[in-house]
């Protein structure tokens, strides 16, 4: 493994940590989804950096494009759910969703 690949993986790990931290500590639903987006950036960076350093950039691009399409669909659906949650609870607080249980 080359040092350049490990450099990219190091930066991807930092992004992954930041996204996971956001998911674990934030309470705003939109902020939680920003955390998911940051994790998505780490994954895309990992795919393309691996493809670039392993001379498989075409396959890596195809995988990255697939990932981006899936990411857009997930974000659109999740934001629609967030708007519906806001209409019901008048809040974006994740803790308010505990009222749905039982």
């Amino acid at each position: 493994m080359s040092n350049v690949w490990l450099l990219y993986m190091g930066f991807a790990a930092v992004l992954l940590f930041a996204g996971l931290y956001c998911l674990l500590t934030m309470r705003n639903l939109i902020k939680l989804f920003i955390g998911v987006e940051v994790i998505g950036k780490a994954v895309t960076l990992g795919i393309i950096a691996t493809g670039a350093t392993k001379n498989s950039i075409l396959t890596a691009q195809a995988l990255a494009v697939t990932f981006i399409v899936v990411e857009v669909c997930v974000v659109a659906t999740a934001l629609a759910i967030i708007i519906n949650v806001y209409r019901h609870t008048k809040s974006l607080d994740i803790r308010k969703l505990t009222q749905l249980k039982g």
Binding site: E37, G40, V69, L79, S91, D93
Partner: peptide, 29 residues
């Protein structure tokens, strides 16, 4: 794809969602 879809489209979706809800949504972090 990253620039047009993620930087463009997803940002628009986020801004529309923020506009349709209150910016802070009554959440205290």
């Amino acid at each position: 794809f990253e620039i047009s879809v993620v930087a463009g489209l997803i940002t628009v979706l986020f801004v529309v969602t923020i506009a349709l809800t209150k910016a802070e949504g009554g959440v205290h972090e």
